[in-house]
Amino acid sequence: MSNLVKLLLGLIVAVLIISVSYLIKPILFEVSNKLMESERFVTVRGVAEREVMANHILFELKVSTLVDDIINESSKYEQNCQKAQAFMLAKGIGAQDIAMRSLEVFTNRRKDIPKNLVTCNLVVSTSKVLKARELLSSLDSLVKEGISVKVYEYQIAYGYTKLNDIKPSMVEEANKNAKDAALVFAKHSNATLGKIKQARQGLFSMQDGRRPELIKVRVVTQVDYYLKN
């Protein structure tokens, strides 16, 4: 009796071994296919570009006055500085957006002009970009009054602070653009695109736009798509 039980147990083990290998059969096949497929992918890049209106501007306006005597002729440069300030206010820049820095005095190296060049620095930091632009392009009306003003192009900083708002839709656009490129490869190989294996969002960059107040925002994404067929 106990021998028969042992024999039966042996039989069960034998059957189990065979059925396990029977079960493993297709899985082995599948695993090797999957391993192969995991190495099949296409790397593509997609770009999204958008031109946005700057929502902040920062620049420095210098007002210079030539005077012989800094103390007795102080009204001269003070007047010029005030005129420039009044001009800014008239152009719609709020008083709270204008900051005045300390005066600069330069002793002229030339003998045939007044001895000193006194410069007052007005720093404008405002969200009224269009009004500031208008101001900058009409600076010659200050010159017309005989006031020497300086705004250097490289010192005008345009800013855009809403990058986070446009980020998702731009990344989406770049990904779609990348997918279009991936489809070209798939078509060539009679394959279909599978899932995304890996995606890398590049850095957002800002460049000069078509007009000074426009900023070109750009992003490149790199996407690896699986190929299936």
Binding site: N108, R109, L117, L136, S137, S148, E153, R211
Partner: peptide, 22 residues
């Protein structure tokens, strides 16, 4: 499509740059 974005008047304060004042 034309923008004038900056203007500056430069004083000629050095001896070697004599002639015009600005």
């Amino acid at each position: 499509e034309v923008s004038f974005y900056a203007l500056n008047t430069l004083e000629h304060v050095y001896e070697y740059d004599k002639g015009a004042k600005y």
